[in-house]
């Protein structure tokens, strides 16, 4: 069945989660938004309450879907690998895939679908090129585990991890335009524009990309 099935719980929204705030900042007021892997609907709620967007969600866990719908959010049960094909081209102004692309079966195809159904695509993901990952593998010789990616290799839902450099390369391959890229360190602070790219890939713990075709 699906890769997310290993994930133990619904994504709980920590209101201080900086990547969500960054995403919310990227979304235009009053736009039509699809949040894929919307968890308990926290981001959708922020977007519809504060940014007046027409928000929809897709969530794999039935528990998450039911919680969202009970709050009045428009959410369906589904997953990024299977269900995006049903949407028409340009169905949304923004399509958001937050901390989920690394858990999809075919990230490249998913990204292609995102770019098809959304005029803008926002993807946030953990950076596997972070120095902690590199040092754990290099010195301990074990699969890295961090507070951000705490699961053991045998039970992690994250089967397609990538570095910021990898992701940027995929965007280039698909001809996606990177309108904005924000890299956050372990404390949630944005790394400055002045920092060279290799250093961002080394010190960034997660990244948020705003893409368009």
């Amino acid at each position: 069945m699906n890769v997310h099935a290993a994930s133990p719980a619904v994504r709980k929204t920590d209101p201080s989660r900086i990547d969500l705030l960054l995403i919310a900042e990227m979304v235009t007021r009053g736009s039509r938004v699809l949040d894929i892997g919307c968890g308990d609907g926290g981001l959708l709620r922020i977007l519809s309450d504060k940014h007046d967007v027409d928000g929809r969600g897709i969530e794999l866990s039935q528990q998450g879907v039911n919680a969202c719908v009970a709050q009045g959010l428009s959410v369906i049960q589904g997953d990024a690998d299977r269900d995006l094909i049903y949407y028409p081209d340009d169905a949304f102004d923004f399509v958001i895939l937050s901390q989920t692309i690394q858990a999809t079966r075919k990230p490249k195809e998913v990204l292609e679908q995102l770019l098809r159904i959304g005029r803008h695509v926002i993807v946030s993901f953990p950076n596997f090129g972070h120095w902690r990952m590199r040092t754990q593998l290099l010195f301990k010789g074990t699969m890295p585990r961090t507070s951000n990616l705490p699961d053991s290799w045998y039970e992690t839902p994250n089967i397609h991890l990538c570095s910021i450099k990898d992701f940027a390369a995929l965007c280039a391959e698909l001809g996606a335009k990177v309108e904005r890229a924000e890299v956050l360190n372990a404390y949630g602070y944005r790394l400055g524009f002045t920092m060279p790219f290799f250093a961002q890939n080394l010190f960034g713990e997660q990244a948020v990309f705003l893409l368009s075709r």
Partner: peptide
């Protein structure tokens, strides 16, 4: 979804 309707689905 194909007509981008506002839809929720709960099983």
């Amino acid at each position: 979804n194909a007509v981008a309707a506002n839809v929720s689905f709960v099983e």
